[in-house]
Design a binder for these strands. Structure first.
Lengths: 132, 132
DNA sequence: CGAAAACCTATTGACAAGGTAGGTAAAAGG
DNA sequence: CCTTTTACCTACCTTGTCAATAGGTTTTCG
């Protein structure tokens, strides 16, 4: 359900949060600490910047920093931004091209309910809950 | 998180349950009703038989039947039997080859807790809850 | 015997996951 | 101004799994 993208994204956010409020954290350092390929992290962090969760600064002394307080991030939004979706089952991924069975499908309510439970779980957890 | 195998397996179980207690249900009929390739269903049903969830009878007039009352199946065991696993995150799939980060990983508790929530959800739902 | 069913083994095509490679632009220090 | 350090960008590749096919063999009943 969650691939490395989401898991790594979460670890990046935690890592930056732990470096403290002041200053920028270069991706190179994060990659070393987290033992993840810097190149791969680049593609993940890009999504986080695009989603407005991180802010990057180029040049010497640059790096990434949080846009808000760790308590103001939900785990759910971090996962959704990095994974690009948030659904346990393909039936629910796109509301647009809906499954033709949806009107009478006996399993759809199950998946819908599970999706609710899942969203509830991750959107009620804060990034700050994962520190320390 | 759940692929077609698990979703189809659930629909097969529901289909058979709806055919009533008496008699066998041929896979051909299930495939037609559910609009799923019979060949593909074969491979899924095999797992269900192996797990002791279904019983097959060869020969003319044969087919599949439930081994127990629909109220005695949990959705969780059906999904686990057909998917072959039951974990939202790769970290938790195999207890054997454990992630080297597990001792200090800040995200592991999150995944573990989510796994608990998920198992709880699906193992408290019965097959009979999906009928009608 | 013959039809209808389960059961068995292998193969395939497509696609995404996970990661590389090789750059260009920006910003600061000297 | 020039070099270093950083983010940022585009393309590519490799591997594995998903979803499904193909083509059988065995079992059982009428």
């Amino acid at each position: 359900m969650f691939s490395t993208r989401g898991r790594y994204a979460l670890r990046v956010m935690i890592d930056i949060a732990e470096q403290g409020k002041n200053g920028h954290t270069p991706l190179k350092d994060i990659a070393e600490r987290q033992q993840i390929s810097k190149k791969y992290l680049e593609s993940i962090v890009k999504d986080l910047v695009k989603a407005g969760l991180l802010k990057g600064s180029s040049g010497k002394g640059g790096g990434y920093e949080l846009c808000r307080d760790p308590g103001d991030y939900t785990v759910g939004e971090i996962l959704e931004a990095s994974e690009g979706r948030f659904a346990a089952v393909a039936c629910l991924e796109t509301a647009s091209d809906e499954c033709p069975r949806s009107a009478f499908c006996k399993t759809l309510p199950l998946w819908t309910e599970f999706n609710e439970v899942t969203r509830n779980f991750f959107y009620s957890k804060k990034l700050s809950d994962l520190l320390n």
